[in-house]
Design a protein around this nucleic acid. Structure first.
Lengths: 347, 347
DNA sequence: TTTAGCTGGACACTTATCGTCCCGCTACAT
DNA sequence: ATGTAGCGGGACGATAAGTGTCCAGCTAAA
């Protein structure tokens, strides 16, 4: 780190926290504009008064302007965000974390974003935005993109900029409809991606919890077979990583399933597979969808998960993840992962 | 200025003031160490509590350590001071001020130091220190140095580092003994300089307020004549600049003299000469000492004066000062000077 | 041995901050 | 056209933080 910055921090130790807080607020406003105090305080995870104090300051500094519909970031504000982006990543130690995680997880790229989405819901939007930027960078080269479901994936679709339209893009739902909220189903997300980018969409509608015979029969259907072939040609896989138990409960799985997941020691879940803490597959939901092998042979894989509560799941998943996988996460998760592994080393 | 710093300031406008304050306190401790809270609060011009709050912080940051004799700056603290020195000058706009003053006063070099010695007595020590560094840089080249009196000059002698000893140096009292405090007489200062540097000293003892005849007679004395010749060979002149009225009062001048000084519109004083606001000599104390012409033909001249109260005097003196003169002043004086000249331009 | 000056602790008091509610307004959806 | 949700700004008692001031105990120099 810059020796000047270090000296500043020595003389003003409160600077880092204060800068982080204000930067986060300004960033959140930018991501959600126009937004009011109350909504902002929800997203930032602080009280209305706190938000008010800081936004008053930001307004005085002419970084945001207050319109009747809410606050928006001024041109100057955007400039400040840009100027501080790398600095904030450095000063928070994010760059150092990325390096550590890269070697720890054995993958080529890790992106760690500020704060913790467990504390500050707005961090999810930022993760979504950066994931969207990364994904968009693949568009010229790769056209067949498989996407899963989940709120994390929804955040990405929100942040896809519509000025990168490309009608050749093909978004493929990586999984069939499951017992999840329809808004966060892979099918919904895939069509949302397509809508934002002007690409086409391939959805997969298969009810969850089929009997084995029904399942086998469906797999012989041409529409379904076509999807299975598409999975083989996938260029990019974009997926979230979940906590095994949470996901199992969300899906209203049968008690038998939950039992198998529990007894197998499942920690993480991704595209229908459950992994234990060694990264071994301990269970798989019997529904159509992309195969683990198909994911791993894709040229590019984006794995997205934030919040310290996901640390264990991330660690579990990356025990056997493909080396070309790119992880996009946040400070909270990254910190926790490094803590956990450090403890293990001590033992 | 660095765009990153600018962005930081936008997001944390209180940073500048806070940094300045803490930097100044740390610097003052360094200059006066070991020093206690009460003495420090006097020098810094703030309350004991304020000082205590900040020094507690500095101690927590391990920039200072508290010994029973007082606080001293740690190694880390010195590093912080060094790292921040140029930054503070930049962020306070001192560098910009120096440029403006250089062209305004028509001289080649101006050094502006932080804060205002009218508010913070410790600033004088800093001015003294920097003046000492500048003077020391001349030592290899120039050996004959004429010095005047005053508290400013005393501050320099305090800060002369004794590890630059040079027995060839010759310090010449630029003036005879005047009705001033003996501690701040040119003679005292000159011998103090000599003591610190290992050089020799030439003092000039002549009572103030001599009759004209006695004065003429003295001037024919060999000891005195020798001094007059030395003035001709002076390499460096180091002098302060005073407010005409203050100096006149300090010297317990006769009412006649004070009247002449007043009616002449004298604003500034330096080495016994009084200048009006156009820089014209309006009066000269009849005592032995260096001549204005002798000063102006010296290869190097250091003029030192700080505090906004000295702004008018500085401005007055530099109306006709030699272009090789170097001004060492502080933020308060510099700011006031620029304000004053800006007002004149508006009219 | 005395004394001056230092740190660290203590405490009442003032000041600023915070949580909370309300108001009038605007923009959008009905 | 009209209702309504959400906005910024104002206000104010409760509360926490900061401030001025003193004292005890200690150390080092005179």
């Amino acid at each position: 780190m810059d020796p000047l910055t270090e000296a500043q921090q020595k003389l003003m130790p409160e600077m880092t926290e204060l800068l982080k807080k204000r930067y986060q607020i300004l960033l959140t406003i930018k991501l959600e504009e126009p937004i009011g105090r109350r909504a902002l305080s929800e997203l930032a995870g602080s009280t209305e008064r706190e938000i008010r104090k800081e936004t008053d300051l930001l307004r005085n500094q002419q970084l945001v302007v207050a319109k009747s519909a809410g606050m928006i970031v001024s041109e100057q504000g955007v400039a400040v965000l840009d100027a501080l982006r790398d600095f904030m990543r450095d000063v928070s130690g994010l760059i150092a974390m990325e390096k550590q995680l890269k070697s720890l997880l054995g993958i080529s790229k890790v992106l760690v974003l500020p704060q913790d989405s467990d504390d500050i819901p707005a961090v999810k939007s930022n993760i979504g935005k950066e994931a969207a930027r990364l994904l968009e960078a693949f568009f010229p080269q790769y056209k067949k993109i498989a996407v899963t479901g989940g709120s994390t994936m929804a955040a990405i679709s929100k942040e896809l900029s519509s000025d990168k339209r490309d009608s050749l893009l093909q978004f493929i739902a990586a999984r069939g409809g499951l017992g999840e909220d329809v808004l966060h189903q892979a099918n919904t997300i895939a069509s949302s991606f397509a809508g934002k980018t002007g690409g086409s969409v391939k959805t997969l509608y298969l009810p969850d919890h089929l009997s084995e015979e029904a399942y086998e029969m469906m797999m012989r259907e041409p529409v379904i077979k076509e999807m299975m072939d598409l999975y083989d040609q996938t260029d990019v896989v974009v997926h979230g990583i979940g906590n095994a138990e949470e996901i199992a409960l969300q899906r209203q799985s049968s008690t038998e399933e939950v039992e198998r997941i529990r007894s197998g020691g499942a920690v993480s879940e991704a595209f229908g597979y459950y992994f234990d803490k060694e990264g071994k597959v301990v269970y798989r939901i019997r529904t159509a969808g992309i195969q683990l092998e198909q994911v791993q042979k894709a040229p590019a894989i984006l794995a997205i998960a934030g919040g310290r509560s996901k640390a264990k799941a991330i660690l579990s998943y990356f025990r056997n993840a493909a080396p070309q996988t790119i992880l996009i996460t946040d400070e909270g998760a990254a910190q926790k992962i490094l803590e956990l592994t450090q403890k293990q080393e001590e033992i």
